[in-house]
Design a protein around this nucleic acid. Structure first.
Lengths: 242, 242
DNA sequence: TCAAAAGTGTTCGTAGTACACCCATGT
DNA sequence: ACATGGGTGTACTACGAACACTTTTGA
């Protein structure tokens, strides 16, 4: 057994805190006018205002008998009255010893997604902010939001993750708007349907929606085939033979 | 503010332990004869034998002034004399309250990669095992290895992660063997070169290697253009316009 | 009948696979 | 010379992007 170098002191309970932070996204119109010009729906994050007036990601400590994901769900639901998280997944752990100056705090982070038709009205101490033009956030929370945003954009292209952002039934144009808001660039509705159909991610419901206020053909309504995350394009290259 | 349900007791220092576990991979011939038939190189994991004789992933507690990744490096290097980890990245956090029966232990896990030419000879209490046919592992460690294996296979197809498994210079046939061992199915050497060249992942060094023992043309030697992880195929679909 | 929105179809480029064929070396 | 391994070239396929054209509705 190689004798180790200097073994650093192990952080014990007195000095090590574990917190769970969640980046909760919804495609919606922001509540705050941080992005003025348009009223198109955009990618929004749920923020809560801490006691000292700083905006933070919802989060807190881990329950003794909970997994971390259960803690994340509880902390978001309890503190902010948002219970309709359709998908929750782990992001990175942030562990810089000084990311929180007072006590050494390790943050295990999650990304949560809320369907765009969910009426997720947060209480006064919270709000939905467009991810472009966030207010200053506490500690390293801004970086965590960026991580989540990247993860979401990446997964939109090779999984069915959009099931958690879309209503139960929707016209393809609405889904296209969701993709557009999350990715930050326009998406061709036509091709989106083709791609998601080929992968059996979305299926036609046979029903049609109502036409818009200025005329137009009534849209067919589609639905996601599954409401569990599924990787739909596992091997971009180097696929297994046969 | 919605009054929460029953707030569970927050796990404090007395009841909550944080450990770091690493799945360290190397493409090599296993030390143990757990896969008998062939002596082709295969994907191997570094395991260490605990005091009570059970095989475990290398790991331990977090240092007070360390990030988790620094802890992971230290724990692998100190305990097992493997210092040549060319790439280290986070995997999931495993947080089931009873994953370790005695004390509530949250495991933050990492995947580490060691180049196939590194002479990483572990001490007696450790060994390299082929991932197919591992001995019984402690707690949930077997599942953690599976997670790592999947992650590695996935990243081989859309990143340059193989830089951390290959020697500094190598013939394409050797790289092909590495991919084959990590993926579990044959990879066409010809096409591998084309793909990795187009993406500027590998470049020819201009040098040639020695021919094998039974004749054959001497191979051109290649090298990875970068030795930092880079995503080379970010958008399989829904790419940004222009 | 016209504008607006939705749906269909066509063309094009390109990445990846499979596989045949050619080259360089040791024995 | 020939076996052995390495390298080059050539179809073939399939997916996705772009975009034109047609259909269905409300005003």
């Amino acid at each position: 057994m190689p004798s180790a170098g200097s073994e650093p002191p192990i952080a014990d309970g007195a000095t090590l805190r574990v917190e769970v932070l969640s980046v909760v996204f919804q495609i919606r119109v922001p509540q705050t006018r941080n992005t003025p010009d348009t009223d198109d729906p955009s990618l929004c994050v749920l923020l809560s205002r801490s006691a000292d007036g700083v905006w933070t990601l919802p989060g807190g400590g881990v329950g003794a008998e909970e997994t971390l994901s259960a803690s994340a769900r509880r902390l978001v639901a309890d503190a902010l009255d948002v219970r309709e998280i359709a998908h929750l997944e782990q992001l990175s752990v942030f562990s810089d010893p000084h990311r929180v100056p007072t006590v050494r705090t390790i943050a295990s982070t999650y990304m949560g997604l809320v369907p765009s038709d969910a009426d997720a009205t947060p209480p006064d101490a919270a709000g939905w902010f467009a991810v472009d033009g966030l207010p200053p956030l506490a500690f390293d929370h801004a970086g965590i939001v960026e991580t989540a945003r990247h993860r979401l954009a990446a997964k939109l292209s090779y999984t069915n993750i959009a099931f958690a952002l879309a209503p139960a039934r929707f016209p393809m144009s609405a889904l296209s708007e969701i993709y557009c808001a999350a990715l930050g660039y326009p998406v061709d509705t036509t091709n989106l349907l083709r791609i998601l159909s080929r992968r059996a991610v979305v299926v036609a419901t046979g029903t049609v929606g109502k036409t818009g206020r200025n005329g137009g053909r009534p849209p067919a309504l589609y639905a996601f085939a599954e409401k569990e995350l599924r990787v739909t394009d596992e091997f971009a290259t180097l696929r297994p033979p046969m």
